[in-house]
Write a protein that binds this DNA or RNA. Structure first.
Length: 283
DNA sequence: ATGTGTTCCTGTCCGC
DNA sequence: TGCGGACAGGAACACA
């Protein structure tokens, strides 16, 4: 899935067709995704106006006029496909329903939003608006990496004493919320840190240095519209372009892109996930 | 309290 | 062309 930049790109793509619009009709095609969907979800969404569409970490949060907030997580393969209300034009064509179209929202204004998720690691839930912190999926999340609460002092506190690799620590959503496998790999490359370095053994300057690198990678990726890889597309079906900026992710056995570096990108497995890195540039 | 391995599910790709 | 296995952007959970 989609990591923070992809989710933010989806949010921006959905804003013009969702925010301020009423959900005319909701169709729910199965009782569960990763977990059971809330009771009566279709009825609770139908007729509700979307007051705001927010993002927290990798979650989309739609505040509804009914006093409830719709929580959406895209998991690994979830997509929000928009059809029927292209900018400037007006038509009612919707694509043929596809396998794994689990939830369909018909919006005021003519747009149809289809949640499609082959692997079904995604999730949806309804909760009372204004109670984000009370939801079990949101309660223990770390700070937003692009927010003010995320700084060197905070990160140092959270990494201190930890015997886990820095790669694994940065993937932990309770430490910082929104990074996934791709962007952690890219962050560690830019920071010059080998993924196997133990989090608690980094120097204070190295920990502090991670913060601006994390912000920079995420900001660049959002600017590029995210990365289009396998399942992910922007809400309008367009491709994101950040994958062209990958320095290490999915580049096993390819030459390091640091000018003059003789290194070859290696792949190792940490906590069950692939890590890509240059042994010459990252120590 | 931390750290690691397993698990959910489907699709794709690669080697034989 | 088919078949088996590895692997895929996540993250809760069970266990050491």
């Amino acid at each position: 899935m989609p990591e923070l930049p992809e989710v933010e790109t989806v949010r921006r793509g959905l804003l013009p067709v969702m925010e301020g619009r009423t959900i005319l009709h909701a169709q729910v095609n199965r009782p569960d995704l990763r977990w059971p969907l809330p009771q009566g979800m279709a009825e609770r969404l139908g007729g509700a106006r979307v007051q705001a569409l927010r993002r927290r970490s990798k979650y989309l949060l739609a505040d509804l006029s009914t006093g409830e907030t719709l929580l959406i997580h895209l998991g690994m393969s979830g997509r929000m496909l928009v059809s029927g209300a292209m900018s400037g034009q007006f038509h009612h064509d919707h694509p043929t329903p596809q396998k794994h179209d689990h939830v369909v929202l018909d919006m005021e204004g003519g747009a149809r939003i289809t949640f499609n998720d082959a692997r079904r690691f995604g999730a949806m839930d309804l909760m009372p608006t204004g109670q984000d912190e009370a939801h079990p999926l949101l309660a223990r999340l770390g700070p937003e990496p692009l927010g003010n609460a995320f700084d060197g002092a905070y990160l140092a506190t959270r990494l201190a004493g930890r015997r886990t690799p820095v790669k694994t620590a940065l993937l932990d959503q309770h430490v910082v919320a929104g990074l996934g496998n791709i962007y952690v790999c890219e962050v560690l490359y830019r920071a010059g840190l080998a993924p196997g370095r133990l989090a608690g053994e980094l120097g204070a300057d190295q920990v502090a240095g991670l913060v601006p690198v994390i912000r920079e990678v995420l900001a660049e990726a959002i600017e590029a519209g995210g990365s289009s890889l396998r399942d992910y597309r922007q809400a309008d079906g367009e491709l994101g372009y950040f994958q062209h900026s990958f320095r290490v992710y999915d580049r096993e056995d390819e030459p390091c892109r640091t000018p003059g570096c003789p290194g070859t990108i290696q792949r190792i497995v940490q906590a069950g996930r692939s890590s890509f890195y240059c042994p010459e540039c990252q120590r």
